[in-house]
Lab assay of single mutants.
Amino acid sequence: MRSPRTRGRSGRPLSLLLALLCALRAKVCGASGQFELEILSMQNVNGELQNGNCCGGARNPGDRKCTRDECDTYFKVCLKEYQSRVTAGGPCSFGSGSTPVIGGNTFNLKASRGNDRNRIVLPFSFAWPRSYTLLVEAWDSSNDTVQPDSIIEKASHSGMINPSRQWQTLKQNTGVAHFEYQIRVTCDDYYYGFGCNKFCRPRDDFFGHYACDQNGNKTCMEGWMGPECNRAICRQGCSPKHGSCKLPGDCRCQYGWQGLYCDKCIPHPGCVHGICNEPWQCLCETNWGGQLCDKDLNYCGTHQPCLNGGTCSNTGPDKYQCSCPEGYSGPNCEIA
């Protein structure tokens, strides 16, 4: 077999650049994923090309098998939009790539799955459409700058595939050579959905506090709520009108309100015997008056200043008058 000629994957630097851009600016990249293909086995019993010639040398006159050299087999892949009637021409609109030389006439790579040499990765940054057309071609490398490479066999497949970690196996069982391969579509990290176009990256910072479920939905951490999980859940009972919080379990009062639940107004400074319904009010309790509710309107009842059976009459805020019984006098009937 001729010395292998290595063929790198098509578009790999571009895919790395796209992945970097997506990581830095995830909101700009609407989708991100990759179409993967792995060659599993190849069977070319006679070492022939599609045109019937030998990959190298002439045929044995007896059994008609190619004798001089085995094929240097590598694969090309073209991925494009779905076609009900597949045409070989036209651009590979979803991507293209190739393997290096991975074997001779016949080989089996099932035991070495995950080997990069027999895998082609086609990254995409558009919403995966699920339906596709795939062209797979086996080629013989001439290892010659003058002699062109020659095609051994080709296969085409049109179908639908959803993103999954599971592989789907396909076979080419007609023509001079048979080969088996597997395909799958996977979303990149933080991308979800059938189109790999739903973005969700767990975070716990100013912009949100959430994890992501298997469908890419945000699940808020304990103590947080809202579409972006950036609204803290305040202390139970915290007034929704007069209290708020920036951290879970907190209850910060608005100006003019106080209390554990921010449901108590702050009265006017200096208010003595008054209450409030709104901040800075001083609504006097019964029998109290004045701007600060510090004037006693029922001095008689509060202090009972009249002595010796005198009768007390309220005459104004903090004022009274005693009517003394016979034989007593003085402001409080204290003089006998």
Score class of each variant (00 low, 15 high):
S3F: 15
S3Y: 15
R5L: 14
T6P: 14
G8S: 15
R12L: 15
P13T: 15
L16P: 13
L17M: 12
L18H: 01
L18P: 00
A19G: 04
A19T: 14
A19V: 04
L21I: 15
A23G: 03
A26S: 14
A26T: 12
K27N: 09
V28A: 01
V28G: 10
V28M: 02
L37V: 06
E38Q: 03
I39M: 03
L40R: 04
Q43R: 03
N46I: 08
E48A: 01
Q50H: 10
Q50P: 02
N51K: 03
C54S: 06
A58D: 10
A58T: 10
R64H: 11
K65Q: 15
K65N: 14
R68C: 12
R68S: 07
T73R: 14
T73S: 05
T73P: 09
T73A: 14
Y74D: 02
F75I: 04
K76R: 15
V77G: 14
L79R: 00
K80T: 15
E81A: 14
S84C: 15
R85P: 14
R85G: 15
R85C: 14
V86G: 11
G89W: 13
P91A: 13
S93T: 13
G95C: 00
T99P: 06
V101I: 06
G104C: 04
N105K: 04
N105H: 15
N105Y: 06
F107I: 06
N108H: 14
A111T: 08
S112I: 10
R113L: 13
N115Y: 09
D116A: 11
I120F: 09
P123S: 05
F124L: 02
F126V: 12
W128L: 12
L134M: 02
L134S: 00
V136G: 00
D140E: 06
S142I: 05
D144H: 12
T145A: 10
D149G: 04
S150I: 13
I152S: 04
K154M: 09
A155V: 12
H157N: 08
S158A: 08
M160T: 10
M160V: 07
I161F: 15
S164R: 08
Q168P: 01
T169K: 02
L170P: 08
K171R: 13
Q172H: 07
N173S: 12
T174P: 15
G175R: 02
G175S: 03
V176G: 10
E180V: 11
Q182K: 03
Q182L: 10
I183S: 01
V185G: 02
C187S: 01
D188V: 06
D189H: 07
Y190C: 11
Y191H: 06
F194C: 09
G195S: 10
G195V: 03
N197D: 05
N197Y: 11
R201L: 13
P202T: 07
R203S: 11
Y210S: 13
A211V: 10
Q214H: 10
N215D: 04
N215T: 06
N217Y: 14
K218E: 14
T219I: 12
C220Y: 01
E222D: 11
M225I: 07
P227S: 12
E228Q: 11
N230Y: 08
N230D: 05
R231S: 06
A232V: 06
Q236R: 13
G237V: 02
G237C: 06
G237S: 06
S239N: 01
P240H: 07
K241N: 06
G243V: 08
C245S: 08
K246I: 07
P248S: 05
G249A: 06
D250G: 14
C251F: 07
R252G: 12
R252K: 07
R252W: 09
Q254H: 06
Y255D: 11
G256D: 09
G256C: 01
W257S: 05
C262R: 01
D263E: 11
K264M: 05
I266V: 07
I266F: 11
P267Q: 07
P267T: 06
H268N: 05
G270R: 05
G270A: 08
C271G: 00
H273D: 00
G274R: 00
G274C: 00
C276Y: 03
N277D: 05
N277S: 06
E278Q: 06
P279H: 07
Q281K: 03
Q281L: 04
C282S: 00
C284Y: 01
T286N: 01
N287S: 11
G289R: 04
G290S: 03
G290C: 02
Q291L: 05
L292R: 09
C293F: 00
D294V: 04
K295E: 11
K295R: 14
L297I: 03
L297F: 05
N298Y: 01
N298K: 03
C300S: 00
T302N: 01
N308I: 14
G309W: 13
S313C: 13
N314S: 03
N314D: 11
Y320F: 13
Y320N: 11
Q321L: 13
C324G: 07
P325L: 14
E326D: 11
E326K: 09
P331H: 10
C333Y: 04
C333S: 02
